[in-house]
């Protein structure tokens, strides 16, 4: 927190003000506009989702959120998001390590390109991954020929798209922690006879663990709600490769607004729980790094 949270009282020469501790102008204006805009754009619309479900009976709500097809979509969405986030912890961790610790040609460009999944519109990512991984695509051809694995239009494709979308999260949360890490500790461990593996396991890993977990949670949270990059590559077969956000859209297209809203409430509650978890993880990470 800033040390200037409470401004000093104005010098005597200044004419007395009604609120002596607020030298800075614009509190009412800025906070008032902030609250007004927030309420108008975010709070009222979001509350509509919850209020809409109150028009349903409990039985109807429960039936809508536990139908066989929607449960299959939860399993796929959360399962694929979990696998994608886990892949990103391993490879994103390695990418962060390599970018911070080693020097090699093209490093700065690679560092900048890590954010591509943030910047590239999801529909573009979706059609590109589909073109690459379909049976006659550049990569899909070999994966299918050599390993006999179909990627596009299967749950594997969903995992692929969600891995792409979550790629920057782990890299960008681990990177600053590694940059700030005190290498003297590693040096000390090494000079006291620890092997490189021991040094990593006992010194480096505990330092970056909170940021790895935060990155995992962020990637997972993003992946569960993802739509654009997934629908092209998923094939969208009910019970097999249909993600929950798509199921909401299907319900809307059938004019089943209540059903769509009920599933949306389940997704929203899941995201709020994840948001809370992420905040706790970040607080833990800050506590660990002593900031």
């Amino acid at each position: 927190m800033s040390a200037v949270a409470i401004p000093a009282a104005p010098p005597v020469a200044v004419k007395p003000r009604s609120a002596p501790y607020r030298v800075m102008p614009g509190f009412k204006l800025s906070l008032g506009f902030t609250l007004f805009y927030l309420t108008l754009i975010v709070l009222i619309p979001l509350s509509a989702v919850f209020l809409k479900t109150f028009t349903m009976t409990w039985e109807a709500f429960w039936a809508a959120v536990t139908s066989e097809r929607v449960v299959a979509s939860y399993k796929l969405t959360f399962g694929a998001a979990l696998i994608g986030a886990a892949i990103n912890v391993v490879f994103g961790g390695i990418v962060a390590w390599v970018l911070v610790r080693y020097r090699f040609p093209g490093k700065r460009i690679i560092d900048a390109l890590v954010d591509l999944p943030f910047a590239l519109p999801t529909a573009v990512a979706g059609i590109t991954l589909t073109a690459l991984y379909s049976s006659n695509g550049w990569i899909g051809r070999y994966v299918e020929g050599v390993f006999g694995l179909k990627v596009a239009f299967t749950p594997v494709g969903v995992v692929l798209a969600l891995t792409f979308i979550g790629l920057p999260f782990v890299v960008r949360t681990v990177q600053p922690v590694l940059e700030d890490a005190e290498r003297e500790l590693e040096e000390a461990a090494a000079s006291l006879g620890a092997s490189p593996l021991q040094t990593f396991a006992r010194v480096v890993f505990p330092t970056i663990l909170p940021s790895l977990m935060t990155g995992f949670a962020l990637a997972f949270a993003r992946a569960t709600g993802e739509y654009g990059s997934v629908i092209f590559i998923a094939g969208n077969m009910p019970m097999v490769s249909e993600i929950t956000p798509l199921f909401i859209i299907t319900k809307l297209e059938q004019y089943d607004y209540a059903g769509a809203t009920a599933i949306a409430v389940v997704m929203l509650i899941a995201s709020f729980i994840m948001l809370l978890t992420i905040n706790l993880l970040q607080a833990w990470a800050r506590g660990k790094s002593g900031k």
């Binding site: 709600g225 739509y227 654009g228 929203l268 709020f272």
Partner: peptide
């Protein structure tokens, strides 16, 4: 933290 699909849905409602 809200899925884009839900962000659209709220305005439909």
């Amino acid at each position: 933290s809200v899925s884009p699909v839900i962000s659209g849905l709220i305005y439909v409602l």
